[in-house]
Design a protein around this nucleic acid. Structure first.
Lengths: 152, 152
DNA sequence: ATGCTAATTGATATCAAGTATCAATACTGA
DNA sequence: TCAGTATTGATACTTGATATCAATTAGCAT
C-alpha cells in the first residue's frame, strides 16, 4: 500500500512485496532498485531493456505484484504500452506531459467533491474514478523556447 | 466531429468519414452500420467477429478514421483491448459499469471548473483532461438482487 | 456510359506486448 | 542437511494491431 514516509522508494517497494508474502530475491531487488533510480514513469519493456540480466517474465511478474500491492499505478496513456508510476499517496490523479511523457501526481479535494455531487445524478453506484490531465510541463515549455528537447 | 442532431448515428459516422475526404464504400458502410445497430461500446475485435465479410485491416482502419474524425471515443478500460464508444457531444467524460461494461457519457460543468482552478496549481500548461467514473449500473444492481446476469 | 486514376480492400505477414509452460534453481523452515 | 515450496527465465504462445501489396472499386472527366 502506498505510504508517504521517509523510507526510500526501494524499501517501500520491497516492503510492498514482502507484505504480500513474497520473497525478497535478487531479481526483485534489481527490478525495484531500477524503478527507484529511474525515478519517473516507465514501461515494462523499458525495464526489460534496462535489466537484461532479469528475465522478461520476471520483470512483468514483479510489476504485476507491485501494481496489485498498490505500490505502482498502471497508467494507460492511449496508444502504446501502459506506463507505471510509483504510487506515493493513497488516492491521487495523474498529470502527464504530452511532450516529454513525464508523469506526476496531484490531489485535489474538489475532484472528490465533484464525485459526491455526481452520485445524485448518475444512474447507479459510483465505485471509483480516474482522472488524468494532459499538460505541457514547464521544462518542455522552456525547452521549446530555446529549441531544445529533453525527452528521454 | 461529434454533433447532437436528429440524424442517425450511421449518417453521422459516414459524414464524419466523408468530411475527411474519404470515400463511401461498402466496407465502411458495413462497419458504421454495425456500430449503429450495436448501440453500445465495442472492441475492434468484436466488430471483426460481427463482420466476417469485412477484412480485419479494414475494420481497424475504419475505426481509426472515425476516432481521428472525433466521431468515436477510444477508451482504455485498463487491461484488454480498448473500447470505442460513439461521441455524441463535444466534450464529455465516461461512466463505465465495471460489472457489465456498459459505457455512458456524462458532462459536468464542475469538472471543467476544477480544471480551471487547477491551472493555477499545476506547473505547466493544461492542454486537456480525461475523466472516467466506474459504476455499478442500476441494471446490474437490479440483476444482482435477482441473481441474474445481463452481460453480453 | 466509359475509361482513367487514385483510393480502398483484404489476405497475409509481421510486429508488439504480455502470458503460459515448465525444468532448473534458490530459499526456508524443520 | 533435507524436503518442499517459491522463484526464475528461456521459450512458445496468445492477442491486438499494423505493414505490405496485388487486386478491386469509387468517383470523376469526358
Amino acid at each position: 500500500m502506498p505510504t508517504t514516509t521517509t523510507e526510500s522508494i526501494y524499501t517501500n517497494l520491497i516492503t510492498a512485496l514482502e507484505d504480500r508474502g513474497l520473497r525478497k530475491t535478487a531479481a526483485r531487488a534489481a527490478v525495484t532498485s531500477r524503478i527507484e533510480t529511474t525515478g519517473k514513469a516507465f514501461t515494462a519493456e523499458q525495464l526489460c531493456i534496462d535489466l537484461p540480466q532479469v528475465g522478461r517474465a520476471t520483470v512483468y511478474r514483479t510489476i504485476r505484484h507491485l501494481v496489485d500491492a498498490g505500490a505502482l499505478c498502471k497508467l494507460q496513456i492511449l496508444d502504446g504500452a501502459p506506463m507505471y508510476s510509483i504510487a506515493r499517496v493513497e488516492h491521487h490523479h495523474h498529470k502527464i506531459c504530452s511532450r516529454c511523457g513525464a508523469v506526476g501526481e496531484f490531489q485535489h479535494s474538489t475532484v472528490e467533491r465533484v464525485m459526491r455531487s455526481l452520485e445524485k445524478e448518475i444512474d447507479g453506484d459510483i465505485i471509483g474514478h480516474r482522472m488524468e490531465i494532459f499538460i505541457t510541463c514547464s521544462q518542455c515549455i522552456a525547452d521549446s523556447r530555446t529549441g531544445e528537447s529533453s525527452v528521454g
